[in-house]
């Protein structure tokens, strides 16, 4: 087997692993999103690499050329890029709101705060706190 013929795909694997690692291992919410986009970009490479034909040219018809790269992966990846930016945008909007609500975007700090919320609910359930949960909060801030 000719290993050299696959080198491009192995670069993809390395990039993907880096991106995926950032998503799982890091605690900063923005960094996770960046990791996610690296992960997705690696998949774009995978698709575009498979569309390439050696000696081919960009898939715009012209009399001078006869060999074109496969256009279908390009189309799919255009769609995937759009999906990627959409996800990033919604994710960032969430991060902004989380920063406002918690004052932090580090995962463990947020988890601590969430645990506190949880404990407050529990305590209140067994009558340690005053019953203020019933006062209907005004919903229009």
């Amino acid at each position: 087997m000719n290993i050299i013929g696959l080198y491009n795909y192995w670069i993809v694997v390395v990039l993907m692993a880096i991106g995926f690692f950032i998503v799982i291992a890091h605690e900063n919410l923005i960094k996770k999103l960046i990791g996610l986009s690296i992960f997705q970009t690696a998949v774009f490479f995978l698709y575009i690499s498979m569309g390439k034909v050696v000696g081919g040219t960009a898939p715009i018809l012209d009399d001078k050329w006869h060999l074109y790269s496969n256009p279908l992966p390009h189309v799919l990846i255009l769609t995937a890029i759009v999906v990627g930016i959409s996800t990033t945008a919604v994710g960032l909007a969430l991060v902004v709101r989380i920063q406002e609500a918690y004052g932090s975007i580090e995962e463990h700090e947020i988890q601590t705060l969430n645990a506190q919320d949880q404990i407050e609910c529990q305590l209140e359930a067994y009558g340690f706190m005053k019953n203020n949960a019933f006062s209907v909060k005004s919903l229009d801030e």
């Binding site: 919410l29 994710g91 969430l94 991060v95 989380i98 918690y102 947020i110 969430n114 919320d117």
Partner: peptide, 10 residues
């Protein structure tokens, strides 16, 4: 409305 909705969604 709970702020935990945001982290859940994230």
């Amino acid at each position: 409305t709970d702020r935990r909705a945001l982290t859940a969604s994230y």
